[in-house]
Nucleic acid binder design. Structure first.
Lengths: 187, 187
DNA sequence: ATTCCCATGTAAGCTGTTACATGATTTA
DNA sequence: TAAATCATGTAACAGCTTACATGGGAAT
């Protein structure tokens, strides 16, 4: 049982999903390819932590709708409460580039930051949309008892982090300009 | 050439380091074990992107101080400016637990969040200390021309993100309490 | 006509973690 | 006396990415 297994279980604890759907939904907090997810679902099924139902579709490929079992729920609960907190991993090539930003021209550096800024702004819009959708639901998502509660918390967190990184970029950009203002001839 | 190779090159572009040192410094934005770093450094050396000098020490094991070559600098510059932005990866088991937070008792959930909060607060203190050190240096770190500039930007970013996550936790904690205040008998 | 979406799966290869191995000096 | 720090390396394994494979329907 690795972390991805638990990520899949907690997705299915919210509602039954196909592997295809899980691959997309998981993007929020644990990016994984379908080639990793399909075999793992098969393994979880073999271990009786999930079950699946084959759903035939017309015009679309058939799909397997997976559900979590009672054993799966128990396993998940146990892990949440007993697994010690593990380090968080961040792998982001942009950060490598920032570290060496002094090697390139300030103009190029600015371009790099603006590119990042645009991607983040787009992401922020999508997050805000999702949050609005959740908040419009019948059972309030801010309620601990809501099945959406955990998901809502994660979206709020992501929105805050994305917004904060945008602020950081706005703070940093003027610093690149300063170095271009300097070369004023002293005569 | 993978991302870690470039991460190592940009570290060495700042100043020469041993593999041991690189392993520690890299924690800031690309966590990797020494078992991954030592063989990669050997490969970079074979490719003439870095060189090393054997430094004998007394009372401590000898070490190899690696430096980046002109070819290494060129390769790094090229990558920074031509490599398209790649997706960012986040792998954090805490987020999985948050997603399924509704499965456990609000008290246990609060414990989980407080634990996270303490770890983040400790991290924030360390970051603030490092930033103060950098800002006390002779050549201003806020200057694009400073060798520390990129590193300074990353520390500022990390500090912002850590602080924002702490704010998020403070925002979320009262939501767990609400569900415990509710069971007030209506008579 | 081409690309995207739906949907599941396998295979090859690269990336990353954990454990093994060594050994003197310093700190708790 | 036990653990941590410095310092480098290898081996085995687990995790993850990219590519291959299939195929209808819808959108551009």
């Amino acid at each position: 049982m690795n972390a991805l297994s638990y990520a899949l279980l907690c997705m299915l604890a919210r509602r039954p999903c196909s592997g295809y759907e899980l691959t997309k939904l998981l993007q929020l907090f644990w990016q994984a390819q379908h080639s990793q997810i399909y075999p793992l679902l098969a393994k979880l099924e073999k271990d009786k932590l999930v079950t699946f139902e084959l759903v035939g579709q017309t015009g679309k490929p058939d799909k397997k709708i997976y559900s979590i079992t009672d054993r799966g729920i128990a396993e998940l609960k146990h892990w949440i409460q007993n697994q010690p907190p593990s380090m968080q991993l961040e792998r982001d090539e942009f950060l490598i580039k920032v570290y060496a930003i002094g090697l390139i021209q300030p103009e190029a550096a600015e371009g790099l930051f603006r590119e990042r800024s645009e991607a983040l702004a787009a992401r922020r819009s999508r997050l805000e949309g999702e949050i609005r959708l959740m908040e419009a639901e019948e059972l309030p998502v801010t309620d601990f008892a809501s099945k959406q509660f955990g998901r809502y918390l994660l979206y709020q967190r992501k929105l805050r982090l994305v917004s904060e990184e945008l602020d950081w970029i706005e703070w940093a950009l003027p610093l690149f300009r300063l170095s271009r203002v300097v070369p004023e001839p002293k005569a």
